[in-house]
Design a protein around this nucleic acid. Structure first.
Lengths: 228, 228, 228, 228
DNA sequence: AATGAATGAGCGTTCATTCAT
DNA sequence: TATGAATGAACGCTCATTCAT
């Protein structure tokens, strides 16, 4: 009952829960409640505290009843992961394909979107947990890779528009560099992190730096040199 | 079976274990064995698998005997964290203060050191766990902050040498941006990650990009503008 | 094997278990089973043997299931203590306020009730445990004090009826003396103690002695004298 | 090293440790240290806290070393019990056989001795533990019975002197009643118990009551009557 | 759709004990 | 005498899971 308040004011929604198969499922309501409760515990108390008992009690149920919705804890976590990842699908596309802005402005908008999202409690708390899981759970790894793949494709398109001379393989590296630079900010300037107040300045450095690399990188410049 | 095989070929050593009280080693052997076993499990199986029983069995002990070395699991984990963090102290200093190299070359060396370390299994696996813990464990938070603080100070000194005109507050933001950009690579180009083969090219982009920002950033440029 | 056989033939019942919340019994059955099992172990094997595993196995459960009924061992022990103490409430009142008997006869009845109860296995075994706990557990101390307080008030009322001339403070001392004299019998004439066969004779000495003190004590006689 | 301060100001000494066989044993010193430490823990923290580790640490040893002095914990506790019981041997005899006092005065002295001892921390804390052990440990039962037997014999002698007309079996009951009355005070007027300040008044009631019973009991009066 | 009741495994921890040194 | 190091058993407790109702 508690803890189902929205976790963030970002315009990335907390969870995007896709209704289950079989028409208008009846348990949809309880199902969402459970996923929000799980997310809330993960955010507020960390993965060690994410037990079925706690999830159940957070939404006023008894633990046994979770079995009605999810066959196992693992399944619950997978649906939670899906819902988290899905929530990022739409905003990326919207910004990247905004026809009213220049490519550079659209890149700037994307950077700001991502870095602002990073300062939300949900993102700051959840993503490090996901990165950690990634190393030992192939399912998590795949879904997280998917998410970043989508982000990178968005960045890639913008790079191509801004500097069409850059060959695809180098474009990829630059997109990766940009994406990684932003993700790395989570642990320094995320929610309640020491640098979170400086995020606006950080965003300006990031945008400036990213645009410069895109503009000035000469084809072949970052290919393996002959050691000289 | 013992799991005390070296985890990395990086010249950042796995653990820097400072002997306990006095000079004469007291159970130092078993103590190191335990910490290496704990690190190994953390790396290979993740924090959820890091139980006292598993640590003990990994070094051929029974669980009860761990209590002889560490009063509690928490204490064991703290000493492990200290040992991990301490292992970075010396390499940073060595590279940053190398008198035979220019400031730019030293920055490049530092970037390569850090990004190469990121590709080691130990770093790729352990740091995301630490980042996750950071959000709910003040002790981990403090120690991890300390580590990054040290890294940032090193970068800061090099920035000052390279572009003395940059005011301190902007220098700080740039150093943070550089550090975060590198850490973010962990999840993309770390050990067994999809981009790990591209790390050399990534390093070149990173060095180029970092040096450019340092060189070209004009004082005041990233301060909050009046929106115009 | 179940150990839920009645422990005593006294008309002080073994436990007075007050139903939990609301009217409709909720697991009341298992709850009582557990408390009786715990009492039984305490009586038969002593407090050192009173472990959750043993309690559980005594009532055919597994240890983990106890957590369903009691949040902690401490809570279980507290409810057990409450049930033990509560079992004395009603018999005391009944005897002391019996309108068909003289005050002296009622005192005699009370003495016999208490001393007979002392010869039951339950009382002989449990109370010394409680006395020992009393010294290091404030909760036990409080509840045991409450019980004796109630007994003392009962005695006090009878003393007042028998010898109204005795001032309250001396009455209190006499009531205490009477109560303590009886409790002390536990270790000598309790269940299977060397003198348990002599309890009837002991009761006669006790009644005689108590009545005499009440009758003959002159006001001021036991106040601190000037050593003369 | 700590905790070997005397526990009481009673003139019953805390422990009477009889040197071990084999001439002037060398470990006598450490042995006494250990027993005092054990007593101290039993008194201050109760039997649940009486572990070998704590005993050892209280006298600056490691747990393993206790095995040098005592083959097992049980043996240690038995020697402790012996030392406690032995400490009461001498004072009883001294008072009861004091040739300079009347029998009545000697009884009074004995009552005061015992009741004063009861108010010491050591006695208040240790004896309830012994009573509890008595119910499940035949060795403790035997030794404690011995102690009370000795006390009762002392009382018995005085009763005989005071009222030689009383037949032996009734004399025994009266002696038992007197002894039990006093022991019962432990839980009410012992160290830090609610009535401990009233002990002097209690002693006066006790002496008066005991003497009266001895004086006025008529032979046969407490034998089983024909129910009339 | 939900609860009550139970299980079995595993957790961190404490304990008495052993034994080589 | 004493310590260092280890063991095996047990402790209170938590967990995901199961299943009849």
């Amino acid at each position: 009952m508690l803890g189902v308040v929205p976790l963030t004011e970002s315009f990335v929604q907390d969870l995007k829960i896709t209704p289950r198969e079989g028409g208008y499922a009846r348990g949809q309501e309880g199902l969402e409640q459970i996923l929000y409760a799980a997310l809330n515990i993960l955010v507020e108390q960390g993965s060690k505290a994410l037990t079925l008992r706690r999830i159940a009690s957070e939404c006023g149920m008894k633990a046994g009843n979770l079995a009605y919705y999810f066959p196992s804890k693992e399944e619950l976590l997978r649906e939670l992961l899906n819902a988290i990842i899905s929530s990022y699908e739409e905003p990326f596309d919207r910004i990247v394909h905004d026809p009213s802005e220049s490519a550079e402005k659209r890149l700037e908008n994307l950077v700001v979107l991502i870095l602002d999202d990073i300062t939300t409690k949900k993102t700051t708390r959840v993503f490090p947990e996901l990165w950690a899981m990634t190393n030992h759970d192939p399912f998590v790894q795949e879904r997280v890779n998917e998410l970043y793949q989508r982000a990178r494709v968005a960045i890639l398109e913008l790079i191509e528009e801004i500097n069409p001379a850059l060959p695809p393989d180098e474009r990829e590296i630059v997109a990766l560099f940009i994406s990684a630079s932003m993700e790395g900010m989570t642990i320094f300037a995320g929610h309640e992190k020491p640098w979170c107040e400086q995020m606006p300045a950080i965003e300006r450095v990031a945008v400036k730096s990213f645009l410069h690399v895109i503009h000035t990188l000469k084809p072949g410049e970052i290919r393996a040199s002959t050691d000289a």
